[in-house]
Design a protein around this nucleic acid. Sequence first.
DNA 1: GGCTAGGTTGTTGTTGAACAATTCCACAAG
DNA 2: CTTGTGGAATTGTTCAACAACAACCTAGCC
Lengths: 233, 233
Amino acid sequence: MDSTSPDLLGEFAADRLLLGRSSTVQKVADVLRGRIAAGALRSGTRLSEEALGGALGVSRNTLREAFRVLAHERLVVHEMNRGVFVRSLGPADVADIYVTRRALETAGLRAATGSSRLAAVSEAVAAGESAARDGDWAAVADADLRFHRAIGGLTGSERIDAYLAGLLAELRLAFAVMADPRALHEPFLRRNREIAELLVDGRTGRAEAELIRYLDDAQALIVARMRQHQETE
Amino acid sequence: MDSTSPDLLGEFAADRLLLGRSSTVQKVADVLRGRIAAGALRSGTRLSEEALGGALGVSRNTLREAFRVLAHERLVVHEMNRGVFVRSLGPADVADIYVTRRALETAGLRAATGSSRLAAVSEAVAAGESAARDGDWAAVADADLRFHRAIGGLTGSERIDAYLAGLLAELRLAFAVMADPRALHEPFLRRNREIAELLVDGRTGRAEAELIRYLDDAQALIVARMRQHQETE
DNA sequence: GGCTAGGTTGTTGTTGAACAATTCCACAAG
DNA sequence: CTTGTGGAATTGTTCAACAACAACCTAGCC
């Protein structure tokens, strides 16, 4: 019998990353990342090695390895001899993140012309609108993240995608603090579509101007909410 | 007696990062990072936990924590149940890095107008020329890195600076393979100065065009050398 | 010869316990 | 109200052990 066809093998090769997901350290990091994104672990919370290790059923050494990767992702802060804490974002951090987003996402727009990856952008827009119709605002938030990652993905750069994914994960630290995801994401649904349509029409200059205004507004909204939240505390 | 003046305290607060530099894990990561950048650890070398731990006088657990941070910096590849290896860069990696550099460094140029940080750019150019006059090509390479970090630094973003630093550290993986740093850096000394002067003159559009050509040429040079090196092997 | 099966060896993955170093808290003293 | 001084709790780091896995080697088979 002939061996498995080469192109079929190629498809499986793409799944290797999903398979390699074992390793207790990775799983622990995934769990903590999820808990932080979901807001279950509030900013500033101290992550005790003994308590967390006991709860998750892993040893302190394994947990510390997971802490190292989360610290490098800036989701957690490691203070020498004091422990690790869930990161808390200030307005300066948000400003820094948005400067970086502007740099990376506008690079995507400048690479958009004729890209085959534009489909992913449109798909994310459609998914967001569909979720909004269902009133599923968590799904809207997810689609919004996908939209922006897809814009960065227009560069075709694996690193830019990884950076953007990290930046958006950091921003969830700010989202988690404030309720009402609807007020946060609904106003941007229409603007997502607008930018996507400008892109498929090849009007990338105009799309870039719109995206920059979009990001400025989003940043201002988040900072305003942050200050408001800080007062009511 | 009055308490210490607030502004003086502020200066000390800036030194906190320098103090927290202990931690065996950090020191081990620093050592390995340095060895990799210097080319003492060639690409593909396997880093045995037992051997390295013994040589450095640290435990396997500590070493594994250091491996996690280096892996996140992409200087090292962690293969499950097989160990960690010094990363080896291919032309596709170099292309990816340069796409990202173009995105980040052009963002710096667009933020250059009237920035007080332009001084750091000019300083790096001068340092490079001075080192070239002395024939110290390692110092020229350092100054070149400083130049590009300073360009990204024009954005004022801490994250962009961190990303650029990481990308340039990755590139050293490619530099380490090939000898003759002079041929690699000398042609770009004049172009560094040209870009810096365009910047202080406020001609940022022209500077951006020059920088993009610069990066294209550098990428092509590195890829050419990589292929050449691969053949002679 | 070339290929497959199966055991051997060396390395990594993970755990648990131990001890030193450090921070934090409370409390006493000036 | 600031400055020492304990002691308790937590982190930093090491060590030893074992399971799990990958690479290598050998033997046997067609």
